[in-house]
Design a protein around this nucleic acid. Structure first.
Lengths: 244, 244
DNA sequence: GCGCTTGTGTGCGCTAACACACTTAAAATG
DNA sequence: CATTTTAAGTGTGTTAGCGCACACAAGCGC
């Protein structure tokens, strides 16, 4: 993990950007900009957290690892959110793993400063709690989606979420990695992706996926994408809109 | 919903029982005992909540309702928990439905009193946040379980959770209702239940299920049951142990 | 006691996803 | 340029769960 120099790009994280000036001023000296590499593990299941992370250009996945080693993504956070809710919820840790899914930058805030500001009970606390509720919606929807929808639909949903969190249409990601996220076989992803490519919704070559037709993807995707997206706007829209 | 007379049985809800005397004293006049009927809807998806519920002898299910009408349970709360986290998380409502799954009693706390006491930042706040984190674990595990485990395993897990929350081995519940909870077909539940009955783990007749062999059920169940149970103890064990 | 509602058993065809095995081909390495 | 590694395509057989349709039977109301 590299440290970058400035805090200029704090505006890149919507939650930080939403803070009122006085609250942000109290935090800014404790906000440390860092660069996160692809695959880097932010925290391991059961491991004591030290920092709360606010991604700016990176995306972090929350992965659940089963006893038999298979994995499934339960949530995702980019510039719309944060990683490390256990720090302020009281548990200090959670039974899942946070992995950098798309390399980029983030700010991190040391536990002590976080807890102090959270205890002030201002906008900061309100935003953190609302984001937590949003994350619960994300996880709930994943639960339901896993039960009821096809791999193809889930792949579309996953691509759409990534599209929202990234600046570009290009996604550096192999079918195998996506399979780990979705908790399905690699072949299943290949077949679903192949079908999407045939319909010119995406294009991919060896680890790079390009989204060609966002609207088309949304048609194929299940309702889950929209429900979660709407809930973000409902819970946090008064502070910031997700699609800005 | 009927109102009962006394607050004597507040000890029946583990979270209430865990409150220090001074905090409980501030709440007790606002705690209203109620009786909940089977099938009663505590709150509807998107509906503004007015009360936080602390079940004592009842069990409440958090159900997600899809656009096509099919349902799936994402969480469950009995005397170990509470229902209505959106009240203190800031969202005021959640995109799911809370239904009484097992008739019984509960206490309810009006929103205003809840928010006041939550704002005090004492043990009450700590317990509520820790319970929320526990609920997230429950939901995450449901997501993973839906993806990776068989109906039979999930049925075992569901029965075990109910056994923990109830006083008896008897469960008033049809296969059809269980199917709605698990988000599967009624026939799937009948087949799984039939297999469990053949192995003398359970016994059932027309809407009543008797659990005969708890240990046996745990062997058949997936790891999910134990993981969630352990996480309850980790997060809330310092206040109260789940299996008391 | 009779019929009706409701809960459960069962069968059939179908599909999505699985597990495993192997091929093809594009990059990376040297 | 040759070799190795890695990403993706493909095939076969298997299975869990679905949708639908219907039989059976327990218990309820009248």
């Amino acid at each position: 993990m590299l440290k970058t120099k400035s805090t200029d790009d704090k505006q890149l994280n919507h939650l930080l950007a939403a803070l009122p000036a006085d609250e942000f001023d109290r935090l800014k000296n404790d906000l440390e900009p860092v660069t996160l590499a692809l695959g880097e593990v932010i925290y391991e299941s059961g491991e004591q957290l030290e920092y709360l992370y606010f991604p700016t250009t990176s995306i972090i996945s929350l992965l659940y690892i089963m006893e038999n080693g298979s994995t499934a993504e339960i949530g995702m956070a980019g510039n719309d959110g944060l990683v490390g809710i256990a720090l302020y919820m009281g548990g200090s840790t959670t039974p899942n793993r946070a992995v950098v899914q798309s390399a980029g930058n983030a700010f991190r805030l040391r536990s002590k400063a976080l807890k102090f500001e959270f205890g002030m009970g201002g906008i900061f606390q309100n935003i953190l709690l609302r984001y937590t509720q949003y994350l619960m919606t994300q996880i709930s929807q994943t639960a339901v989606c896993n039960r009821l929808h096809t791999v193809e639909q889930q792949l579309c949903r996953w691509l759409l979420i990534n599209h929202d969190l990234l600046q570009t249409n290009k996604l550096i990601m192999t079918h195998d990695l996506i399979a780990n996220m979705l908790g399905v076989r690699r072949e299943g992803v290949s077949i679903a992706a192949g079908r999407l490519q045939k319909r010119d919704l995406i294009k991919y070559v060896r680890g790079t996926i390009t989204m060609l037709d966002r609207d088309g993807l949304q048609v194929v995707a299940c309702e889950c994408y929209q429900v979660v997206s709407d809930e973000y706007d409902r819970l946090l829209g008064k502070y910031i809109s997700k699609n800005q």
